[in-house]
Nucleic acid binder design. Sequence first.
DNA 1: CTACGAGTTCGAGTGCACTCTCAGTCAAGC
DNA 2: GCTTGACTGAGAGTGCACTCGAACTCGTAG
Lengths: 139, 139
Amino acid sequence: MKIGELARRSGLTAHTIRYYERIGLLPFADRDNGRRRDYDASILTWIAFLGRLKETGMPIRDMLLYASLREQGPKTGRDRRLLLEAHRTRVHARLEELSACLTVLDSKIAGYRAAEERTEADDEPDKRDEPARARTSGA
Amino acid sequence: MKIGELARRSGLTAHTIRYYERIGLLPFADRDNGRRRDYDASILTWIAFLGRLKETGMPIRDMLLYASLREQGPKTGRDRRLLLEAHRTRVHARLEELSACLTVLDSKIAGYRAAEERTEADDEPDKRDEPARARTSGA
DNA sequence: CTACGAGTTCGAGTGCACTCTCAGTCAAGC
DNA sequence: GCTTGACTGAGAGTGCACTCGAACTCGTAG
């Protein structure tokens, strides 16, 4: 598989694939007789996993560490697990954080809704911009 | 309240507060007789809310839109609500995405754990780096 | 009066993760 | 033999969100 096809199949651009190879996130690819990268389909699994790490907010420098452990073979399994476990903890924390924010967002939206209903009812403009607390003067 | 105290109380740096004012995320602050910013405590509520938006991944350009609607007073309530609802949808999607990734991460970790147990059992090195699929040759 | 520390503006610099341009190379088709 | 189009490496450029430095101004304590 050439870089163009890998780009289509992985969702990365050819530019990004070369960039990832340059920085060591992808292993140095075999070249054909014309020095062009020629990939095995198995690289797709690795790219997909990198995608997960990225999606969960892992910085490239950490992915590089994981990648280098992977390059060193199965003896690094424990280190890789520890790395993933630490990351898992962070992702979990982020998840909780987002949930909490979602709650705040919901109550803010509810506040705006309530304000709109009041406005429809008495059509009275005011200067408030904090809809979460209802005006006591209202209906 | 001067910028230093606001920085301490909001968790932003004085640099960031000035930057936010410059780009319009914070309203232009009143100045004292020496041209220094003098804040009312109410700004803290706004900064906290901006923090929520930021925490949930809203880009500054969207926060700017929200801020400008807020500046225009209560007549923009509906627009602000729509903006927040759209954002809420994105945050929710992100949350699901993260949950899915967490599952993948968990199974990857479980795979490494299993590999470690096998290694402890038969102390046999191998070349595999995809722990999710167990070796059938194992005990 | 002088020193100090906190503030001011403006603009340049930083770190991240790409993203793109350039000049050149190569295999295949006409 | 020539064109075409995907590919090459090196390096510059981009967008985001700050972050910092330089040179300056104030108000107050000593």
